[in-house]
């Protein structure tokens, strides 16, 4: 399956991926209108320390701890992708604790949110990848 991979060597820590992620989730037409005066809560995060930076989002693990930890059956596999059914999620956030990458976070609605490779918005392709100015984030089969 094609996954989002990050090459830390080329990551500039510009945080554009976070904004493209947040914008994609709004399904809007204009980033300025969609994200004006909003504190974004993206599903991809830049980790940075001591001059090293890279973006982290869901790895779509083969043996996902988050799915095992989910008490309500909200997190599950569809093909090879890990998806979340927010209707079923009870907001216990066990998945947040279980994910070794810190790729799951609470959403504004109290339920968990995670990267679903932009399949649930109108983008059609991961927008973090499309918007990365330095080719640091790629979407490919490995």
């Amino acid at each position: 399956m094609k996954r989002v991979y990050v090459n830390e060597k080329w990551c500039l820590g510009c945080h554009l991926c976070e904004y493209n992620c947040a914008f994609a989730a709004t399904n809007g037409d204009d980033m300025a209108r969609s994200l004006m005066n909003i504190k974004i809560n993206p599903k991809i995060h830049i980790e940075e320390k001591d001059g090293i930076c890279f973006a982290v989002s869901c790895r779509h693990c083969e043996n996902p701890y988050c799915v095992s930890a989910c008490i309500s059956g909200a997190l599950h596999k569809e093909a090879d992708m890990i998806v979340i059914d927010s209707e079923k999620c009870v907001g216990c956030l066990s998945c947040v604790l279980a994910c070794p990458y810190g790729a799951i976070s609470p959403s504004e609605d109290g339920v968990a949110q995670k990267c679903e490779l932009c399949t649930k918005n109108k983008s059609g392709e991961p927008m973090c990848v499309k918007g990365c100015p330095n080719g640091a984030i790629v979407f490919e089969e490995r």
């Binding site: 500039l12 820590g13 510009c14 945080h15 554009l16 904004y19 980033m31 300025a32 994200l35 004006m36 005066n37 909003i38």
Partner: peptide, 13 residues
């Protein structure tokens, strides 16, 4: 001002 979302990309770059 109608378009700036204070994402701070300009500052970092």
């Amino acid at each position: 001002k109608d378009r700036c979302i204070s994402c701070r990309v300009c500052e970092r770059q």
